[in-house]
Every structure is written in structure tokens, then in C-alpha cells.
Simulated assay, not measured.
Amino acid sequence: METNLRNFSGESIYVGIDSHLKSWKVTVMSDEMELRNFTQEPDTKKLSLFLHRNYPGANFKCVYEAGFAGFNAQRELTSEGINCMVIHPADVPTTDKEKRQKSDRIDSRKLARGLKNGDFKSVFVPEILQQQDRSLLRTYDKIIRDTTRVKNRIKFFLMFFGLSIPDEFQGKNWTKEFINWLEKLNPGGYGNLSLQILLDEYRMLSSQTILLRKQIKELSEQARYKANAELLKSIPGIGTLTSMILLTEIGDINRFAGLNELSAYFGLIPNCHDSGETKRVGRNTKRGNVYLKYILVEVSWMSIRYDSSLLLTYKSAVRKMDSNKAIIKVARKLLNRVRFVLKNKKPYQVNMA
């Protein structure tokens, strides 16, 4: 059928995109049938041109799964007048046959079919400025993790060569004096070069950490964050860094209907199975933001030192379960405090019920 001779005004065209680094598998459907299935370069302008040329006047709806590609394709397709949705990969309805015969063609067809049937709910797509701010905090987290790794490599290097750290540096590692001591070590041969490379990496990461901390502090003092950052810092255990992580990841707190929805975003909602007379509650779901969950749990360990109300929650929970599960109870309660101060624009009062 020569689709370019037909006017599609008033009709809906559903486009499922199975995105990969070097190609997109695209399925195009109407309300009645599958129209096309093809492979193209990962180029939004080419897809837009194809759709407008072959289905003039149609109401276009696209969908792809959240992943490595981020939200750039969504923004570009939207600017081309194409309604584009980004969804959680686990939300795609799949038959047993499709699970056993997986292919890019089948995956793009599932996306187009689910879009046509109204099965999907879009994940939150942040504004580009919020995404840029997020990248600063996420990069800082990666640099801190890399720094920990290189520190451990240096320590294992010393152990491998039988080089003991002097008592004067025990518990005071990574001071200027300790680094100077490392500089003077002589493992011999290529061991000297290996140690110097590790130390160079440590220095580079340290300088990047200092730069990022400075930028994060400056960002926290900008008008769009300053007031909310101060509110969050009124909660015990939350400082400038954590407040900025929360603000850049959450965005507008009002986009969450309630605490349960916010907790789900943080991965603090348990899996459950309720069928007939059987009801089981399992571990926390893995659907949430793993990065945010990790940060909130770390803050919870700090908060119970300063907030007796949270400490009471922890002590009560730890009688029934291990400490790692008990701290999740605290994290959920702490998240409720975060939600309260951001929604009500009031600082937190320590030990508030």
C-alpha cells in the first residue's frame, strides 16, 4: 500500500523503538494493524522525516525504554511534534512465547502494541537543567568511589611487597605526611613505576574531588536550590552534599502523590504477593533509584545518632529483624521528614513525631 498517497488526519500512529547504540529497531502500528517494521540509524530527525512523509497528518505516539540513551531522543522527538514516552523496561507486557523467542523485532513490536493498548505510564523526564545538575552530583559520587578503589589498590600493593604502614599513620591514612611517606618507598624495579602510577591516579582524583565539592557548594547557593537546601539541612544527618543529591534527583516534590509513591521512587517499597488466602511480603523492590536508596540509608545511619525519635524507631525494629533491615525502617521515616519540609517549607524540628 502506498501510504504516502493517503491522508492520515485524525488517525493515531504508534511507534515502538527498541534502541541500541548503533541502531534502532522500529515498529509502526495503526489502530487496525502493523504497518512497518524496519531498522534505522539512531537518529530522531530521520525517524521524524519518515513518519511525516509516510503518514501525513497522523497523530504520532512513540515509546522507548529508559536506559543508556537517556532522555535526549524524547526531547528531540517532542520538538519535532511527536509525542514520545520513556518507560520502565519492566513495565512492557510480555507473553511466554516472546520471552522464549526474544529479538529486536519482537521487542519493538511489544512496545508499539503496549502503546496502542494504553499499557504504559511514562517515567519522569527531568528538565535539561535538572539533568545537568544531577550529572554534577552523580559524577562526584563516581569520583569518590574511584578514589576508594585506588586507595585500596595502594594498600594491597604495599601488602603484596611486604611493606607495612608505620604505627604513626595507622588510622590517619591519606594525610599529606602519609603521601610523602608513600613517595619515598622503594619497592624496586617496575614496582617503583607501578606505585607512582597509583599515586598519580590518587592525586588526580583528589584534585577532581576538591573541584567538584566547590562546584556543588556554589550550586547549593544558587536561588533555585538555596531555600530548599537549607530546609533539608535542618534534618539531622543531612548536609550540603546530601541535600543537593536529594534536590537534583527528586526535582519537584509535588510530582509525587504521597509518601508511598516517593518511597517507591527510592526503592523503599517491599515486593508483595497477595492471592487468595496467601499474603507474603518480601524484600524491597529493585525498581527504585538504587543511587538514592544507598544515599538515604547512609544518612539514616548518621541520623539515628542525633535524633532520638529515629533512634527509637531503629531500636524497636532491630528487636524483630537484623540491623540492615531495621535501618530501612528508619530510612522510610527519614524520607517522610524530607517530604514534609519540602512540601510545607518549614524546617524540621528534632524529635518531632
Rank of each mutant, 00 (worst) to 15 (best):
A229L: 01
I143T: 14
V281D: 02
R255M: 13
P93Q: 10
R280Q: 12
M321V: 14
W174V: 05
S135Y: 01
F60S: 01
R305P: 02
F156M: 02
A257I: 15
G282Q: 09
N344R: 12
R6N: 07
D119I: 05
F38N: 06
I82E: 01
I154V: 13
D119Q: 10
V350N: 11
L77D: 08
G282H: 08
S300W: 09
K102G: 11
N351I: 03
T139P: 02
E65F: 05
F266N: 04
M321P: 01
N344A: 08
G239D: 06
N260P: 00
P42N: 08
L136R: 02
T313V: 15
F157V: 00
G118S: 12
E261T: 10
N83Q: 08
Q132V: 12
R213P: 00
K121Y: 09
Q222R: 15
Y140R: 15
A112D: 02
I143C: 09
L115S: 09
W24D: 08
R287A: 12
N59P: 00
D104A: 13
R319K: 15
I269D: 02
T148V: 10
R145G: 03
Q74L: 09
T278R: 10
W301G: 09
R287Q: 11
T147C: 05
M352V: 03
N59S: 09
G251N: 07
L231K: 01
P89M: 11
E32P: 01
D43H: 10
V318C: 09
C272P: 00
I253S: 08
V92A: 07
G114V: 09
W174Y: 07
V123L: 15
I245G: 02
S12V: 07
G67P: 09
V28E: 07
Q101E: 11
K325Q: 14
E127D: 15
T95I: 07
E76F: 06
V350F: 04
I13L: 13
Y64C: 04
L310R: 04
A264T: 01
G16T: 06
K184R: 14
F266T: 06
Y265K: 02
L182H: 07
Y140L: 13
K233W: 02
Q196I: 05
I269K: 06
L21K: 14
Y140Q: 13
Y306K: 12
E183T: 13
L5C: 09
L212A: 04
N289K: 13
S103V: 14
R203M: 01
F256I: 13
A257K: 15
Y190A: 01
T278H: 10
N72C: 06
Y306F: 15
N4F: 14
L47S: 03
L35S: 05
R280T: 11
K142E: 14
R153V: 00
Y291F: 15
L268E: 08
W24A: 05
Y64Q: 03
G10Q: 04
D31A: 14
L163R: 05
S79Y: 01
W181T: 09
H20N: 07
S30Q: 12
L311F: 09
K45Y: 06
G81D: 03
T78W: 08
D274R: 12
I238P: 00
E218Y: 03
A66L: 10
E201G: 00
F156N: 08
A317K: 10
I82L: 06
A90M: 13
N117T: 13
V290Y: 11
Y14L: 10
L231A: 01
